[in-house]
């Protein structure tokens, strides 16, 4: 069995998940003693190939087409290389761009696709583990197919670090023709006066707060503690706090000394932004909320009871909400 992993880069940088893919891909290939091949499409492919040359990689295929990600170029290139190599497993990151081309490639190839895989057991076929119902349960799936595709969750496998001696081969893909999707550029959002990544202590509010009118309660706690206020995504989606307060995959990655998550469930995209905090404290009514999997301390209770008490402990006055 062989494995084909598709690297990811953006704006000139190879993304970390590409090196994680090598670790996961190697483990998968090892299960049956097969090859691990990596393909990188677009950008400075030779420089990327250099960085992708890690222990365990057999061949790196470079497809010198375009600068940035375009799903049609990726889909064409991966489909054609797949036809040539006939790998058992196609492995790609469960990233925003991964989810923009892998489902199309899997459809074209007629192979089953399992997304956001957090673990697997390979042998005859593969059994994968993924999360469901907002991370409250894990499920395993047995994939009984000669060929399949999986996207793997970022930051679940360590980055492959050791240098390798892979062969590098340009792959001449027939891509392009008429591209129905044109990428015109990028824009960075979430700037502004507050930089939550600088804060030592973050008091972070989630959907458990229920209403915009209740936000001052958490604001008061942050003030009383001399901490900075941040939030999960729904609070920003609702327009209750500006984008620069959002912690998570599509917001900011923060690493404070203390992170107090109040009424936040701990969805994977939120956790991606705060799991590096030194001490994580959760206040959440739901003992099965996934935030407790990464919290160091927790209070399983109603935030509307606990937070006013806490404000008073420090001599503040809780607003009526």
């Amino acid at each position: 069995m062989s494995v084909l992993a598709v690297a990811e880069h953006r704006r000139g940088e190879l993304r970390d998940v590409s090196l994680e893919l090598i670790t996961a891909g190697r483990r998968l290939a090892d299960a049956t003693g097969g090859d691990l091949d990596v393909v990188v499409v677009g950008g400075d492919v030779d420089a990327f190939a250099d960085r992708l040359d890690r222990e365990g990689v057999d061949t790196i295929y470079t497809v010198d087409e375009g600068e940035e990600f375009n799903h049609e170029v990726y889909a064409d290139a991966v489909e054609q290389l797949h036809a040539e190599l006939e790998p058992t497993a196609l492995v790609a990151p469960n990233s925003v761009n991964g989810l923009d081309y892998v489902p199309a490639v899997a459809e074209r190839l007629g192979v089953p696709l399992i997304t956001d895989v957090i673990d697997f057991e390979a042998g005859d076929g593969i059994e994968v583990t993924r999360e469901q119902y907002g991370g409250k349960v894990e499920t395993t799936y047995d994939v009984d197919a000669d060929q399949y595709a999986v996207t793997v969750r970022p930051a679940e496998w360590p980055k492959a670090e050791a240098a390798g001696d892979a062969a590098v081969e340009p792959f001449d893909a027939d891509v392009g023709g008429d591209l129905g999707t044109t990428v015109n550029g990028f824009e960075e959002v979430g700037g502004g006066d507050v930089d939550i990544t600088e804060a030592d202590v973050l008091v972070s509010v989630g959907r458990g707060i229920e209403e915009e009118d209740n936000i001052p309660l958490i604001e008061e706690l942050a003030d009383t503690l001399g901490a900075t206020l941040s939030s999960s995504r729904p609070i920003v989606d609702n327009g209750w706090l500006p984008k620069n307060r959002q912690v998570g995959q599509s917001g900011k990655v923060v690493t404070p000394d203390v992170y107090i998550a109040i009424g936040i469930s701990g969805a994977v995209q939120h956790v991606a932004g705060m799991k590096g905090a030194d001490t994580i404290i959760a206040i959440n009514t739901d003992p099965s909320a996934p935030i407790y999997d990464i919290a160091d301390y927790g209070i399983v209770d109603d935030l509307f009871d606990v937070v006013p008490e806490l404000i008073e402990e420090f001599g503040g006055e809780a607003p009526d909400v």
């Binding site: 499920t139 009984d144 197919a145 399949y148 003992p287 407790y292 160091d296 301390y297 209070i299």
Partner: peptide, 28 residues
């Protein structure tokens, strides 16, 4: 070709210390 084989509650990776008691106690 895909078959669900198991569903379970994940074992907590962390070992969160959960403070118990009334809201007043836990806040303290």
């Amino acid at each position: 070709p895909v078959e669900r084989t198991d569903m379970y509650e994940p074992e907590s990776e962390g070992d969160a210390t959960v403070w118990e008691g009334s809201s007043e106690d836990t806040a303290e």
